[in-house]
Structures are given as C-alpha cells and as structure tokens.
C-alpha cells in the first residue's frame, strides 16, 4: 500500500508550483475535446485531466527526434499521465533497460523523470484498458498520483522515495487519510472502472482477454489482415501515438559519426528492408499483421504482458478508421468460426 494524504485543490497547485521550480514541468491541458501535454504556463487554472492525453509517456522518455549529443539542462516532470501510460512502462523498460545492453539515453531520462499521474474520472470512446485487464487508474510506476474525491478534496498517493523526498524537501506535509476516505477511494475507482468497461466491452469484452494471443497466432492466414490493410494508408500514425511502440532508427549526422534517433514505424515498407532488396514483409497486410503479432504474441511470450495497454490512441489517430478493438474481436470470432 502507498502512503496516501488528503489534500485540497490549492495544495495540488502548490505541488505543481514546486515541481515547476526543480523540473521542466509538462502537464496535460485541455484542447478542444482532448488533452495535450505541453510545457507549464499559468498553473492557477489547472484541472485534473479526466482521461489520457493525446501524447503517450514515451514522448518524454524517447523524444520523437533525439540528438544524442544534446544534454538536457533540467530533468522533466509530467503531470497528467494515466494508468495506461504507466502500464506501458513495463514494455519500454523491458526493451530499453533489460538484456546485455541498457540504452544509456533512455536510462538517464527514466531515472530523472518525475511522474505525477492521476486517476481517470472519465474516458474517451476509444479507451479500452479494461479489455486488456488494466484499470483506469495507476497501480504502480508513479512518484505521485492524484485521486479526485470531490471538487475540492483530493488524495495524494506517494509511490516512491523520490516522490516522498520531493514533498519533504519542499516542506509539503499533509495529513494521512482515514479508513473512511480509503473506502471512498475504492468506491470511486470501482465506479470509473465499471463505466470504462461498460463502454469498452461493446467493442472488445474483457472476458475475451485470455483468448487474444491465441486468436492472433491462429489467424495468421486470415483474410481479415488483407481486408483491414485495404484501408491503411501507411502513414504510421498508429505507431507514433502508441505508448508501447518502441521502434526507432538511427540517423548519422552530417560530416560526422554522431547520431540522431527518430521513431520508426513497422507499418512502413522500408522498415525491415535490407540493402540487397530482401524484405520479410513487403506487403502492407503483412506489416499490419506484424504489429498485432508483436503486441499480442511476442510481448506475451517474452514479457508475459501485452504490448498494448488499451489507451485507444491508435483508434483516434487512424485516418482509415482501422480499429484495434474491432480487429481483435473479429479475430476471435474468426477463430471460433473455423
């Protein structure tokens, strides 16, 4: 269990003010129907974001275009990350920190970043974390997490020593919550989880979770891939907005051996192409299928988790209306049929 403190709206603005002193603070700000995470400006009107922002957490750990030689002056703090963002850390950490080689650039950011997350209080139509066994509130991976009890009352969960030390160093002390509030938190969380699931189940029922890997594996030759790929324009937006997609390519800088790193997309034809011309996935449908194999077969096998946290960003980003929930649900139906 985390240490949980009862705080007021004004306290939470104070916390952000302090973060803004020591860190380059980014936070989720309302923009139309969505939230975008941008650099902190005036913090007085800050609201707890209702659901995940358009940017995934990887944007801050692996910048879309990264110059390895540039040193960031201040570590980053992000407010407004959600459960789906923190769930994707399992995948990113596995890729970038495990094995014989750590990625030194990711490791440095991961270590220094301050993560201030919050529970979802609402959802986007595309949200489906519950279909994959996740909850619309963070369970781990945050330094601080914020839960809204009412318009003025919030609960602050302290997830790490880093979070604790930050509060101490800034003389921010709050009283512990009592068991009555603890119960209220659980009720609020159960209610939002039920609400998200009720919506997500319309697309991909949570009860099918354990059949997903098998459905992807066993429908390798299904017509579904070609049908779905017919609407794909190969823009790569799904992989750009995905919190778990981690692929990149290295660019050699002009007149030097120094490098830049930029996100890559397995949907693009050039992705696995080698200089001799061989390409293991020369057809678009093979590349679309490959994305599902990576997320629902590869990661369950090597890490025992999906390479997808149900944030639904790819559903919103796709201009061809390709819907990951629909594909998964159709694959399950297809398997049952055959």
């Amino acid at each position: 269990m985390f240490t949980s403190k009862l705080i007021l709206k004004s306290d939470f603005v104070d916390i952000l003010d302090c973060l803004n002193q020591g860190y380059a603070l980014f936070y989720a700000q309302k923009s139309g129907q969505d939230y975008n995470i941008s650099k902190a400006g005036d913090l007085s009107n800050i609201e707890l974001p209702q659901f995940r922002a358009s940017e995934p957490i990887k944007s801050f750990l692996l910048p879309a275009k990264e110059d390895f030689d540039l040193v960031e002056e201040r570590p980053i703090a992000v407010f407004g990350l959600k459960g789906c963002d923190l769930s994707s850390l399992a995948v990113l950490d596995y890729v970038y920190l495990e094995g014989d080689y750590k990625d030194s650039y990711y490791a440095k950011r991961r270590e220094s970043m301050f993560i201030f997350s919050s529970d979802c209080t609402d959802f986007k139509e595309s949200c489906f974390c519950t279909s994959l066994g996740y909850k619309p509130y963070p369970k781990e991976g945050f330094d601080l997490n914020l839960i809204k009890l009412s318009e003025d009352e919030y609960v602050l969960e302290i997830g790490t020593d880093k979070g604790n030390m930050f509060l101490k160093n800034n003389n921010l002390s709050f009283k512990n919550i009592n068991s009555e509030k603890q119960k209220k938190i659980q009720d609020i969380r159960d209610a939002i989880a039920a609400k998200v699931q009720e919506n997500a189940d319309k697309y991909l029922p949570a009860s099918l979770k354990d059949k997903l890997s098998q459905a992807v594996r066993e429908n390798y030759d299904s017509q579904i891939w070609q049908d779905e790929a017919s609407r794909c324009v190969e823009c790569g937006a799904c992989t750009v907005v995905c919190g778990s997609c981690h692929c990149f390519f290295l660019i050699t800088k002009e007149n030097s051996f120094d490098k830049l790193r930029s996100w890559d997309s397995c949907l693009l034809r050039s992705y696995a192409l080698v200089a001799g011309g061989a390409n293991p996935r020369s057809h678009l449908y093979e590349r679309l299928r490959n994305r599902f194999i990576k997320k629902f077969d590869f990661f369950p096998k090597v890490l025992n988790t999906f390479g997808c946290t149900g944030c639904g960003r790819c559903v919103n980003a796709c201009i061809g209306n390709i819907d990951i929930r629909e594909i998964l649900s159709n694959l399950i139906k297809e398997k049952v049929k055959s």
Binding site: Y96, C247, D264, C266, Y271, A272, L273, G276, A278, K294
Partner: peptide, 15 residues
Amino acid sequence: EKNMSCGVGKCGHCR
C-alpha cells in the same frame, strides 16, 4: 541477414 540497425535488441527491425 536482417535489418540489424541498433545491434542491441532495442530498435525492433530485425525481429
């Protein structure tokens, strides 16, 4: 022979 780009199992290309 695959598109081994990063060389250390991070960039994804040679799976």
